[in-house]
Amino acid sequence: MLSYILRRFLLAIVTVWAITVLAFVIIQLPPGDFVTIYINALQSSGSPISYGQAEAMRAQYGLDQPMYIQYLKWMGMMLQGDFGMALAWNKPVKEIIGDRLTLTMVVSIAAILLTWTVALPIGIYSAVRQYSLGDYVFTFIGFIGIAVPNFMLALILMYVGYKYFNMSIGGLFSPQYAEAPWSLAKVLDLLQHLILPALILGLAGTAQLIRIMRANLLDELRKPYVVTARAKGLSETRVILKYPVRAALNPFASTIGYYFPYVVSGSIVVSLVLSLPTVGPLLLTALVAQDMFLAGTIVLMLGVMTVIGTFVSDLILMWIDPRIRMEG
């Protein structure tokens, strides 16, 4: 059991390292660099800078050095907790990302929790009452949930909210709290604003999880141990919740890891539409501006979180499935 954890942990570290290389390469892939984009921007606004100035800027950011040196420098900074400067903002990356990363986590976790609390019971219902009216209704809603792009749903909800309820949906805070320091009132305000984004971001996932849970549980319900449990005289609810549902949860636990980046990357457009202060839109602008430190940090963060998530889901799997615990 310990060796299983240790093995997973070492694998996680190797994976993180691979992600840093990948993140770096991906960011360097487009032709040109931040300075090129910067010069173009200045030129189009009518105030070109000289070749010397550009070279000085390149030297300042270390952009004139070979790629592997840039990578090593970047890694060195990272290990010391210095994420570099966000070039377009001229501020440390840490400062720009900090709050946004926390809020991203909050929004994503809210979306995931909502997804689970809605999807699990509905999935169980749909499987136990397969081909019932309720099953068909949920299946219908589920497929619509998968098919409708979430930014569209966001737009519709905003429109409906504005037109009929005269409220503006968007952002995570009311104007008076946006810049205020953290307080209980601000947290409550956040919770109020959280519901809609979580709903919108969670909808597609909910629909998918309902289908997955239904399929898993249908498989499990036909297994002999369910008959055994029934033959013992347990009530049907107890039989289903204790045995097949427990077995059907395995795939859920193993998807925790990738679900988080899925929500974050899937949320870019929604975040733009709803003007949520999360890292999604930030990543987009950083990529467009080839802001390597900022984009690199975000991609890396997402990667590391995926790895941590996967590690956690391995631990959870081990906890819920004795076969893995005993044989791993």
Binding site: V227, T228, A229, R230, A231, G233, R246, P322
Partner: peptide, 29 residues
């Protein structure tokens, strides 16, 4: 699924069947 039938199942009538591999759940001792 009523109380009387459940009280009979397992108490008055026991069942064993073919699949010793899968007739126990692997999730509990």
């Amino acid at each position: 699924d009523g109380a009387l039938m459940r009280a009979i199942r397992g108490k008055d009538i026991g069942l064993i069947f073919q699949e010793p591999m899968t007739s126990f759940s692997a999730h509990y001792t």
